[in-house]
Design a protein around this nucleic acid. Sequence first.
DNA 1: TTGTCAAACCTACACCGTAGAATTTATCGT
DNA 2: ACGATAAATTCTACGGTGTAGGTTTGACAA
Lengths: 211, 211
Amino acid sequence: MARRTQGTSAGLDRERIAAAAVVLVDRDGLERFGVRRLAEELGVDPMSIYHHIKGKAALLDAMSEAVLAEVAAGVDDAPRDWEEITRWTAHRYREMAYRHPRVFPLLATRAQTSPVALAALERLVTAMREAGLPDQAVADAPLMLFGFLNGYLLAVLSGGSDVVGDMPAIDATAYPTMATLTPLQVGFGSVAEFDRMLDAVLGGIRNRADR
Amino acid sequence: MARRTQGTSAGLDRERIAAAAVVLVDRDGLERFGVRRLAEELGVDPMSIYHHIKGKAALLDAMSEAVLAEVAAGVDDAPRDWEEITRWTAHRYREMAYRHPRVFPLLATRAQTSPVALAALERLVTAMREAGLPDQAVADAPLMLFGFLNGYLLAVLSGGSDVVGDMPAIDATAYPTMATLTPLQVGFGSVAEFDRMLDAVLGGIRNRADR
DNA sequence: TTGTCAAACCTACACCGTAGAATTTATCGT
DNA sequence: ACGATAAATTCTACGGTGTAGGTTTGACAA
């Protein structure tokens, strides 16, 4: 163990720590993640981390924030139309989830109130509002969209294998209709499936304009 | 400590253990939950539990299964029309989530493959199929519906207080549009809000028939 | 009676999050 | 140049965790 001498800076800060934590969880999973393992990865004493981050909960928050930031990257290339900007955000969000499948549960579980999250929501709702969608539809949209995104991605990624496979085979005699439908679920986790369902959700938001 | 004598039965079984675990998590939260605390609650040695349930992961699965079973209770009163049965299931699911807000994250995070879960899905898809919905729409419906339900309920319940309050106040100068919309979010977590979004999702599923 | 077996318990181990204090270095006003 | 102060890191220690492996007990069948 290459120990550091006390007093000298190890160049630790919230950002570096969070980045290392994401790498660690991507590799070993959330179960095996812990402050001690992270410290070893950083070549540092476990308690050093606590000088930059209050505790494990705050550490998990920092990780969420770090991966969320990836979504906003390159936001200047984003389209202006509300449907297109929503689709763009949803796809960026999905790609982030596939890049960090073992970190993603943190995002879905913990409330996101970081500036980067709020900024993304603000972009969405302003675009919708300018397009003339009714206020209630706009106000509902974020919870509805990210509700779906979080739940869907959680389900699709919970398989665990990096190459997303198909669902577990189901008993044809006990559940005949579902068995009949399985051929249509070959693309479980595919972009095509994602786009189908995203279209349906967007349609649900759009049609609120008619009431 | 009223210790039991070895050899005698303590009347433990998977069901009783899971029920006690749900009560414990409802009271103290997932963070504080552990095999030892559960054992104390049951008046039993921690390791006794492992004779009925493989490990902590299996214990969490058993808890999910237990609360899921509440949803299916009284299924004979369920309607026949696909939209109504879907609404009925969604409401039952929501009520269960509000009854066990601290257990619910387990449901959303872990893949549900228990017979009770599959039976509910089978009811849904058969009703949809008999109503003449296109096969792809039917095949997509469960993932889409429960994706939304899980994500939405996760978000709504993550506040933590038993009486669901309002969202945290947001900075009006940094996020002007969102600030304008906040009055429309007074019913955060209410049945009315839930019904609005559920309607939109159902509409999204229904309109797939037209393509 | 005796043998078998399942259910419960006991012991022990490696690991965890973190409170609190000690240690070293950098910084800055004088 | 110097002493005080502050900040970053490490050290030590405590109470908790999940669970592997072995031991005890009682019930029941032969």
